[in-house]
Amino acid sequence: SKDAAQYVYDEAQKGVTQVTVNGVTFKFDNWQKLLKYAQKLLN
């Protein structure tokens, strides 16, 4: 959902490398990768 994507995006902006959405945890090597993933979700 857009809300989940926005949440992931906001978390990535904080510099975190993992985020949990609806009980599913996504882990990334660095926050830039998390940010890229979030941007994909938002598009």
Rank of each mutant, 00 (worst) to 15 (best):
S1M: 13
S1E: 12
K2A: 09
D3W: 06
D3K: 02
D3H: 07
A5V: 08
A5G: 06
A5S: 06
Q6R: 09
Q6G: 10
Q6W: 11
Q6H: 08
Q6T: 02
Q6D: 15
Q6L: 09
Y7G: 15
Y7D: 15
Y7C: 15
V8M: 03
V8A: 03
V8T: 07
V8E: 14
Y9K: 02
Y9M: 09
D10K: 04
D10S: 05
D10Q: 06
D10E: 11
E11N: 08
E11Y: 07
E11H: 08
E11G: 05
E11C: 15
A12F: 12
A12H: 09
A12I: 11
A12W: 09
A12R: 04
Q13N: 11
Q13P: 06
Q13L: 11
K14A: 09
K14W: 12
K14R: 08
K14S: 08
G15Q: 10
V16C: 15
V16Q: 05
V16E: 04
T17R: 05
T17H: 06
Q18F: 13
Q18L: 12
V19G: 09
V19K: 02
V19D: 04
V19E: 01
V19F: 04
T20D: 02
T20Y: 02
V21L: 02
V21A: 14
V21N: 05
V21Y: 01
N22M: 15
N22R: 08
N22Q: 12
G23H: 07
V24D: 01
V24A: 04
V24F: 07
T25I: 12
T25D: 08
T25K: 05
F26Q: 09
F26D: 08
F26P: 10
F26H: 07
K27N: 13
K27E: 04
K27L: 15
F28W: 10
F28L: 13
F28M: 07
F28V: 09
D29R: 04
D29V: 14
N30P: 03
W31Q: 00
W31K: 00
Q32S: 04
Q32W: 08
Q32K: 04
K33Y: 06
L34Y: 01
L34S: 00
L34E: 00
L34V: 01
L34D: 00
L35N: 00
L35R: 01
L35V: 02
L35M: 01
K36T: 03
K36D: 05
Y37P: 00
Y37W: 05
Y37F: 10
Y37G: 01
Y37H: 04
Y37L: 15
A38D: 00
A38R: 00
A38C: 10
Q39N: 03
Q39C: 15
Q39F: 07
K40R: 04
K40L: 11
K40Y: 04
L41G: 00
L41Y: 02
L41A: 01
L41R: 01
L41K: 00
L41V: 01
L42W: 04
L42G: 00
L42I: 02
N43P: 01
N43H: 03
N43W: 06
N43K: 13
